[in-house]
């Protein structure tokens, strides 16, 4: 059931909602926590579709030279799992994964090379949703339950998802998981600030959209002890992500498919 804004005004006698709502959204962007990120990210708040396309295109840079996943570090994964109530179903067929490790040759499956630099041969790479600029999952979703935000984040609307899993077939990165069963019994500590999911919907990493809206960095970025993950605005030439990409050689996963993945790995 939906209620149009007009009906809402009529019924409740609310006068200024329509005009002020968006103003409020931006007003709050300027305040409190948003400031933390607004400089670094250049975002802080989602803007309206018309002006954001030029202003903000969020992206992630993962410096594999700094990443110590091979020494058993799982800090980014743990922070995400805990913060987003991800059930621990191990590596079973029902597994749910938002961010996890894959060997370099699996993550970059189209970069076959037997004579790699030694430290990359068995390198474990953190992989997660690329929040593609041209996301095939959004294109195929029959209900727009997955959609692209103006700042580039590929969002999930868990109330709308019908669980057809067409997005999973379309994703070339295996970034999406389906709730094959009720996840709650498999969550040790429920974070009350974030919902759990119901069985029968698809989920994935959304670069902590809920934190980005408050001007905070994604949990994985914050948790990384080596500062190997950097998050920011690709459209701002002075942002840290742009500086890193300018000075270092970076690769993306399967760029040839035209999805324009927005996670850049420094190698």
């Amino acid at each position: 059931m939906s209620i149009s804004r007009r009906t809402l005004l009529k019924l409740a006698g609310i006068t200024a909602l329509g005009v002020t709502a968006e103003k409020y959204a931006t007003a709050h962007a300027g305040s409190t926590a948003a400031k933390v990120l607004s400089k670094a990210v250049g975002a802080g708040k989602r803007l309206t579709k018309s002006n954001v396309q030029q202003k903000v295109r969020l992206a992630m840079v993962v410096d594999l030279r700094k990443c110590v996943s091979n020494q058993g570090c799982t800090k980014c994964i743990d922070a995400c799992n805990r913060g987003h109530n991800i059930p621990d179903l191990g590596d079973s067929k029902d597994a749910i994964k938002w961010i996890w490790k894959e060997p370099y040759e699996s993550a970059f499956v189209d970069q076959e090379n037997f004579y790699m630099r030694d430290e990359f041969k068995n390198k474990m790479v953190p992989v997660f949703c690329n929040n593609c600029d041209n996301p095939p999952c959004v294109e195929v979703c029959p209900t727009q339950a997955t959609f692209q935000r103006p700042d580039g984040i590929v969002m999930m609307d868990w109330h709308r998802c019908i669980g057809c899993r067409y997005c999973m077939a379309a994703c070339p990165y295996g970034s999406r998981s389906f709730n094959w069963r009720d996840p709650r019994p498999f969550i040790k500590d429920i974070n009350p600030d974030y919902p759990t999911r119901t069985k029968g919907v698809v989920e994935k990493c959304t670069w902590c959209d809920e934190r980005v809206d408050q001007g905070l960095l994604p949990l994985c970025v914050e948790a990384c002890p080596e500062k190997a993950m950097v998050f920011g605005n690709l459209n701002d030439p002075n942002s840290e992500v742009r500086q890193l990409l300018k000075d270092n050689f970076s690769v993306r996963r399967k760029p040839g498919l035209g999805t324009s993945p927005e996670v850049y790995y420094l190698v």
Binding site: S2, I14, E22, H28, K45, H159
Partner: peptide
């Protein structure tokens, strides 16, 4: 309505009458 505005439209605050 709140849900749609927060999840889909990026509006997170509501001003009452």
């Amino acid at each position: 309505d709140w849900r749609t505005q927060v999840v889909r439209d990026g509006i997170t605050y509501y001003k009452s009458a």
